[in-house]
Amino acid sequence: MTDAVRAVNLSKTYGAGAAAVVALDKVDLTLPQGTVAALLGPSGSGKSTLIKALGFVSPGDTGEVFFEGRLVVKDGRPLADLAQLRRRHLGFVFQKANLTSFLTARENVEIACEFGGKTDGRRRARELLDYLEVAHREHAYPEMLSGGEQQRVAIARALANEPSLILADEPTAALDSVRSRSVMELFRKVAHDRGAAVLVVTHDHRALDVFDVLYEMEDGRIRPSAHRSV
């Protein structure tokens, strides 16, 4: 199985001198395609920093990131067009759905297709909404959708360009347990059906059985979790 993303010896420090905070400390992580992984850990352990580094938003200071086998970031320096990588190969899901407020559910997905260079954005947006069972809400604006519906649309948007990697930062924090599990199961479905690697940052231990692999972070270091995975 091809690796979607691989981080090697990835480090990042905020501040300097006595005030320096090590957010990532020589992190090694490999996510093969078709894997759904959870990233656990207390606040401030470096989870969000790792998500930003793997999402090519805020690179680490040292270390390397490979994307689909290709070295794209080395010691904080981009070796590829990172915006284009995000556009075409990455999907993001946030704690709040973070849908664009002035676009309808369908347009939120369609615009992601456009950014990814897809010409049949409207059709694909409808397909994805249908896949995630929110097609009947395609004309609704985000504020008219429930929290669960918003997250489904956000996942549809993340899937718009058939990404190799989906990064989700506490996507169920605002949902009740039923909807939370439903979203987690969607990630699993996406990973297994579509072959994407999914990394989900979560504090929610109620649905950990959904994940293929669990990681835990503490003080910037990552290790396999002691929690049971499937």
Binding site: A83, R87, R88, F94, I111
Partner: peptide, 18 residues
């Protein structure tokens, strides 16, 4: 007032011109 929307669009890789 669109700051957050624009940040999300940027994260999604929206071309600067758009």
């Amino acid at each position: 007032e669109k700051t957050h929307d624009i940040a999300v669009l940027k994260l999604m890789g929206a071309p600067r011109g758009r």
